[in-house]
């Protein structure tokens, strides 16, 4: 059972071509290298074809099929995006949203990690928390956004509370799995050699839990984004969500799509580039996986 995102995480973490750049020694290796290159080329061609196809459809339908206010052409969106960036609106509103996420998610991570470890180590605590964790994960974030907006009004605390409540179960669930799967063979080995507890945690437990922690961060982070924006859509006076609501209320499809795409691009950038770099650094020890 693949949760799509988790799966992609491991795949991309396992990438990294150790063989690239080495001189091919034999004829066979040379052939394999050539084939690899051809494969890579065709992959990019098909990928590119995908982009051309979709943007073509978009351009075509906005020119011939529907009015501009329903689907503005790609170029208009680009122009609007550029306007948002150059006017400084981007920095103001992204900053406002990011701040809420940073505070909310840090709290969510601490709480989630604590509960997750407790649940993983003890069946009683697992029973105590498991229903709530399940409920919090399956309830639409909107609910918590509405309740926290009602309780805290437009103040700063509301969004953060919403982010914490929706984010921590994801952290907890991932850590439960990690703690439960703890490598008994390695901890036993350490015990037979009288390795100290601090060293055990640093060299065995943390490296083992790392993938679970990264998955937790990934999930929790993407939830935090969505909930933080949602609080702004429901009742905020700054932030990405607030701008999206403004464009929505004035029926400006171009403005709305621009903000949505910028939001999306930025989230993707943080997740794929910033976080991925950390993950890759951490997983240097993994042997190359050939697909």
């Amino acid at each position: 059972m693949v949760h799509p995102k988790g799966d992609m995480a491991t795949k991309s973490a396992a990438k990294g071509d150790l063989k690239a750049g080495r001189e091919p020694a034999t004829d066979q290796e040379q052939k394999a290298l050539l084939k690899k290159r051809a494969d890579r080329r065709s992959r990019w061609i098909w990928r590119l074809a995908g982009y051309v196809f979709f943007i073509g459809i978009w351009q075509f339908s906005s020119t011939y099929l529907v009015e501009d206010f329903i689907l503005p052409p790609p170029l208009t969106i680009l122009e609007t995006m550029q306007e948002i960036v150059t006017s400084g609106l981007l920095v103001t509103h992204f900053g406002a949203t990011l701040e809420k996420i940073a505070i909310g998610f840090s709290l969510a991570f601490i709480i989630g990690a604590f509960i997750g470890i407790l649940m993983g180590m003890n069946r009683w605590w697992e029973a105590f928390f498991s229903d709530w964790v399940l409920i919090l994960m399956t309830t639409p974030g909107l609910i918590f956004v509405l309740v926290s907006t009602m309780v805290f009004g437009l103040s700063y605390i509301g969004p953060i509370v919403a982010v914490v409540i929706t984010g921590f179960p994801y952290v907890a669930v991932n850590l439960v799995e990690g703690v439960k799967a703890a490598p008994k063979d390695l901890t036993d080995m350490a015990r037979s050699y009288n390795v100290s507890r601090a060293r055990l945690i640093r060299h065995v437990i943390i490296p083992f839990l790392a993938p679970f922690i990264f998955t937790a961060i990934r999930y929790g982070f993407s939830i935090a984004w969505k909930v933080a924006t949602l609080t702004e859509v429901i009742g905020g006076n700054e932030g990405i969500g607030f701008m999206m609501r403004r464009e929505f209320q004035s029926f400006s499809m171009a403005g709305f799509l621009s903000w949505a795409l910028l939001f999306f691009a930025f989230a993707l950038f943080l997740e794929r580039i910033v976080l991925q770099r950390q993950i890759d650094r951490f997983f240097r020890w993994r042997p190359e996986v050939t697909s």
Binding site: K226, L230, M244, F248, F251, M253, F256, L257, F264, L268
Partner: peptide, 14 residues
């Protein structure tokens, strides 16, 4: 996959 469902809802609404 990664697009918030909020965006889909608002686009459909518009």
């Amino acid at each position: 996959l990664a697009m918030p469902s909020l965006v889909w809802a608002l686009i459909a609404a518009m």
